[in-house]
């Protein structure tokens, strides 16, 4: 049958498109229909089922902070996903508490998504509430002042712009907070 595609351009195009579309449709259109957790915002009130909490929409300031995060390309070096690996839950935990695994229902408000692919710096999926504003100010001015050996670029133009700086910190403090995972409620502001 595919022999025909040797001599007939239209046939070759149609056959290659049909073969492509089988996989194309089954892996893009079908999964969100099958797996509804991709589009249902996280909400849990039963501690027996894991961390409780509710996914809330970002406010205007947090959204501005997110736009800065995108503009500066933070997502090229920082992922936002605690994977189903013991090492991830341990490494991105805090003060003896393991970080909960990231689930699709925590990200339904995200567009563009910020999952990322590369960890030149640490994962930020649960960074919200780990460091206070003063820490972030010093760190953004020159990361090496706080973390010796860091290769993160300095961002003086953000620190020197109070509106942008506070927006960015406000956004960072929301990360991972849909799940209330700190038993002592010891989140920094």
């Amino acid at each position: 049958m595919l022999k025909k595609a040797d001599n007939n351009a239209l046939w070759a195009v149609i056959a290659s498109l049909v073969l492509f579309l089988i996989g194309g449709l089954l892996t893009t259109v079908v999964p969100p229909l099958v797996d509804t957790s991709w589009s249902k915002p996280f909400e849990n009130t039963d501690p027996a089922k894991g961390p409780t909490g509710k996914l809330v929409k970002l406010n205007a300031q947090q959204l501005q902070g997110r736009a800065i995060y995108i503009r500066e390309g933070c997502w090229y070096c920082h992922t936002q996903q605690v994977r189903t690996l013991l090492a991830d839950t341990k490494r991105y935990g805090w003060r003896g508490v393991d970080a909960p695994i990231s689930t699709p229902d925590e990200f339904v408000n995200d567009s563009p998504h910020m999952f990322g692919t590369k960890r030149t710096g640490p994962d930020l999926a649960r960074v919200g509430g780990k460091y206070d504003e003063q820490w972030h100010r010093t760190h953004f001015r020159n990361p090496r002042d706080l973390v010796k050996g860091s290769v993160m670029p300095p961002y003086p133009w953000i620190v020197n712009n109070p509106v942008e700086f506070q927006a960015l910190v406000a956004y960072l403090q929301t990360l991972g907070r849909a799940k209330d995972w700190r038993p002592a409620n010891d989140y920094e502001k």
Binding site: A15, S16, L26, T27, T28, Q81, L85, D88, P104, F115
Partner: peptide, 22 residues
């Protein structure tokens, strides 16, 4: 050629192995 046409498009989710995807 014909195996490429069929097989390649299915693989996108391998960028999120262990990640928040089914």
């Amino acid at each position: 050629f014909w195996s490429l046409a069929f097989v390649y498009v299915w693989t996108g989710a391998h960028h999120m192995i262990h990640g928040p995807i089914s």
